[in-house]
Design a protein around this nucleic acid. Structure first.
Length: 565
RNA sequence: CGGGGCGUAGCGCAGCCUGGUAGCGCACCUGCCUUGGGCGCAGGGGGUCGCGUGUUCGAAUCACGCCGCCCCGACCA
């Protein structure tokens, strides 16, 4: 296509509201414009990239035998009420009423609708497995849209769903998606990690997230040489206590700690490192008090605690509740003598003679031994921290920020059960199919590519998802020889199967170079003085490498560079 | 929902404190010039100063209310 006729509104300056690189560049390069918080207009370039991304996703989904459908984004309340998610989704779901005052919502995801289709039509185990997918706009009333296209209120998702006779079938469907996702993200040129994820209240047995490490991400993942997990689920070997525990069968002994509230305070006061202290958190879990215990230098993992405690939600106790139950203020709390439920992190098991609050304001106890001076349920409720090591190999682990681009998980029977999906097995008996659910955030692929590949001059898009493969840049449109050579090269690129952009604007070369660097076209063929010798220059955006080549060979050369060998 | 910041031309900003004709750079239009990294010269167009109410002879500027956007936290199948 011809640049002179296209709408590519590039900006020289960064709009003030953009913070993360992908957001800044999407605006500067004229890919998108904001309509409202979390709502973006995808202009020509973004739409072209999105179409290429969607094309790759569609090919790979089709390749595993998934069947594409297209479901309504506008959903009646009833279907969501059946699964229970009408209430569960809370304010995150956009809701509206029709003219008869009937309730509707805008779909956040489509488990319910897919299950609705399945239960209406599937009758026999012979029809299974089924893999269904769609590429559809999703709506979520995010409490805080942010970071450009990374967290928005309307976005395009590829979501697929599997229906299988049994768990073994689900394993197969799950693995197919796992492999397809790898091919998709590989083809999109992304560097990603696959992490074990928490499957949450979905009751799923297995879940993986596909994550791209980036400071723009909002999740934390733990990565080692042979380990990767979401922080919510990650396990590790903690750094050993800073000093060994005092030996002997010592009795708890109260000591005065006036005004010393935090572990750090008390630690500085009594000379024992935080790792020799017991951190006591008073929590209210499903309306009942629970005391959670951790090593002084550790943090509670809310996700682990929730599942260990077997509760749906919890919160820190209010000061009044703490005073009522413990008889002391926060800062002097401990497990000794407490009757409430106590859950202690496993790193406390086997420790001896530690320091804990005395449940008497401004007093602590030394020589507290877990399991002797108090009883507790021991479980892993600790969050991995920087410096921890791999639980099996002892190799270092890293905590990095990452963005989620894909998520697969085994749903189990949640929807098929609650919504009454049944088929007959070979004996004529009713069975409930087991489901899986698999999502990819389309614009996050675009964002991830930009976050991963950009420099001060702009984007460096992978060729597979760049809006164009190559830009042809005659340095002077007033020069008839350059113009004609550019035209014929443009035609030849098209014949070679490339997606070329002809920069036929009557602009100075500097403007054209800056713009094409900004919008991230992977290759540029520059036509200038060297054309007199029959040569043009090929410029590789990613490396800034340049080389001369005969005009006649340029198209074939770029074609070879674009197509991975 | 809690905390913070911002709202003046398409973009980036100044002006506000101390009320008195709305400015700068970029972008845009016209002409000349230039043509391998956002070139130069000359001329020009474009603004309900987020909205409302109040104070005042007079409000972009002061007060109050509202709205919008961004950031931090909470939240995020």
């Amino acid at each position: 296509m011809r640049w002179s006729q296209l709408f590519i509104p590039t900006l020289r300056e960064v709009p003030a509201e953009a913070e993360v690189p992908s957001h800044q560049l999407l605006l500067r390069a004229g890919y998108v414009r904001q309509l409202s918080a979390g709502l973006y207009n995808y202009l020509f370039l973004a739409q072209r990239s999105m179409n290429k991304i969607i094309g790759i996703v569609r090919q790979e989904m089709d390749a595993i035998g998934a069947q594409e459908m297209y479901l309504p984004g506008l959903n009646p309340a009833e279907v969501w009420q059946e699964s229970g998610r009408w209430d569960l989704m809370g304010a995150n779901m956009f809701r509206l009423k029709d003219r008869w005052q009937r309730d509707y919502c805008l779909g956040m995801t489509h488990e319910e609708i897919m299950t609705f289709i399945a239960r209406g039509e599937l009758r026999s185990y012979k029809q299974l497995p089924q893999l269904w997918y769609q590429i559809q706009t999703k709506f979520r009333d995010e409490p805080r849209p942010k970071s450009g296209l990374l967290r928005v209120r309307q976005f395009i998702m590829k979501d697929s769903y599997s229906f299988d006779v049994d768990a073994a079938g689900l394993d197969t469907s799950y693995q197919k998606h796992y492999d397809a996702y790898c091919r998709i993200f590989d083809r999109c040129g992304l560097k990603y990690s696959i992490v074990e994820a928490h499957s949450g209240a979905m009751g799923g047995s297995q879940s993986h997230e596909f994550m791209v490490a980036s400071d723009a991400g909002e999740d934390l993942i733990v990565i080692g040489r042979n380990y990767a997990a979401n922080l919510e689920k990650a396990v590790s070997r903690p750094v050993p206590p800073a000093v060994p525990d005092p030996e002997g069968d010592l009795q708890p002994e109260q000591f005065h700690t006036p005004g010393q509230k935090s572990i750090e305070d008390v630690s500085a006061f009594d000379g024992m490192p935080p790792s020799s202290h017991i951190k006591s958190l008073v929590l209210v879990a499903d309306d009942k008090p629970v005391l959670a215990l951790l090593r002084g230098d550790h943090q509670l993992s809310e996700t682990k605690f929730t599942s260990v405690a077997g509760v749906s939600e919890f919160r820190p106790a209010h000061p009044g509740e703490i005073a009522d139950w413990m008889g002391a203020e926060a800062g002097s709390l401990g497990p000794v003598g407490m009757k409430m439920r106590i859950i202690a992190d496993i790193t406390l098991e086997g420790r001896r003679n530690m320091v804990a609050g005395a449940n008497k304001t401004d007093y602590h106890l030394r020589n507290v031994t877990p399991g002797e001076d108090f009883q507790a349920e021991f479980a892993d409720i600790r969050q991995v921290t920087a410096g921890d090591t791999d639980i099996t190999t002892g190799e270092p682990l890293q905590l990095v920020k990452a963005m989620e681009i894909g998520h697969i998980f085994k749903l189990g029977y949640k929807y098929s059960e609650s919504m009454g999906l049944r088929v007959q097995d070979e004996k004529g008996k009713d069975i409930t199919p087991i489901m899986g659910s698999y999502g990819i955030g389309m614009e996050r692929i675009l964002c991830a590519a930009i976050e991963l590949y950009h420099d001060d001059d702009g984007m460096m898009m992978p060729a597979s998802i760049a809006p164009f493969d190559v830009v042809i840049t005659p340095v002077n449109m007033k020069d008839a020889a350059l113009r004609e050579a550019a035209e014929s090269l443009y035609a030849e690129c098209k014949r070679a199967g490339l997606d070329p952009l002809l920069d036929d604007r009557d602009e100075r070369p500097g403007v054209k170079f800056k713009d094409s660097d900004l919008i991230g076209i992977p290759f540029r063929i520059t036509l200038g003085k060297k054309l007199a010798e029959g040569n043009v220059e090929v410029y590789v955006r990613r490396t800034k490498e340049k080389f001369d080549i005969a005009l006649a060979d340029a198209a074939a050369k770029v074609k070879a560079l674009v197509t991975p060998s």
